[in-house]
Amino acid sequence: MREVRISLVGFGIVGHGVLEVVRRKWGLLRKMGLDMKVVSVTDINGTLFDETGIDPQRLHAARTLEGIANLDIIGKEAIQKVDSDLVVEVTPTNIVHGQPGLGHIEEALSSGKHVVTSNKGPLVVAYNHLQEMAQDNGVMLKYEATVGGTMPLISLVEKNLVGNEILGIRGIFNGTCNYILTRMMEEKYTYSYALTEAQDLGIAEADPAYDVDGIDTAGKVVILANSIFGMTAKYEDVSVTGIREITPEALNLAWERGYHIKLIGEVPALTVKPMLVPRRSPLAVGGTLNVASIETDLSGTITVTGLGAGSIETASAIVSDIVSIYTSRQIDG
């Protein structure tokens, strides 16, 4: 049985999801030979540490660690001081400077700990630098959850399509935009009405700019460009148009002519813009779904779709990454 001591940094929606998935899948993980223990949880209030593994039930109802933390350390200090094998970094994302996640990941990698993250910011800002750090320290950095949530994309390309040349990837990488456009088309809602509905349902943030202006999608385009296409793209290299100008009339007109309008991100073109998607295209998925078509030289075009966000869904991608780190290591050994 391989013991995996995990430090969870960030205790929001995704952090809760990770605790829940590790709890639910504990038996299955043991069958795989992994004894996964979350030994610490850190947020801005402090760190809860238990070397025997934190009982997720204990944190189930807690929104923050206020009054629960038993160590007065946060951030990089917590990563450095807690004895663990792997850091799950799930703090809020910032696509401009990548902090605080960037500092957390750097600290973890330089301390010889594997990192699994759903945090786009650090990867958008410093993907190549972080991968070099991981390599220099003999550890792995996995980030499947940063692009398309639960939809397997990075691992699909790296494992299942290995040997193929990837010619391009295009897809819908933001469930919020897809939801808004779907509702506008189906119900003839205006953009602002569909947005308020999405906000009421918790699908869109109070400040929706990050999603509807295409910033989030552009971040994912940068991650794909650097990780799969070996580019050195920065956020500024992406040409970005959001969905604010789309009208229900335009959606209706497109529909009559056999098209949807979707916010499409493309690599290596580095574009994010609303595009006409034929109604019968595999990219024409509705609601909050994400989808990606991968064009390859040998396997043709492969399309995957799945939920792009959500607590348990994102956590599932994180736990898959953790498992893959240890299962691929077993093969190496």
Partner: peptide
């Protein structure tokens, strides 16, 4: 705002 179709250009 010019909205182009996805099939018009290769990825």
């Amino acid at each position: 705002l010019v909205i182009e179709p996805i099939e018009a250009e290769k990825i």
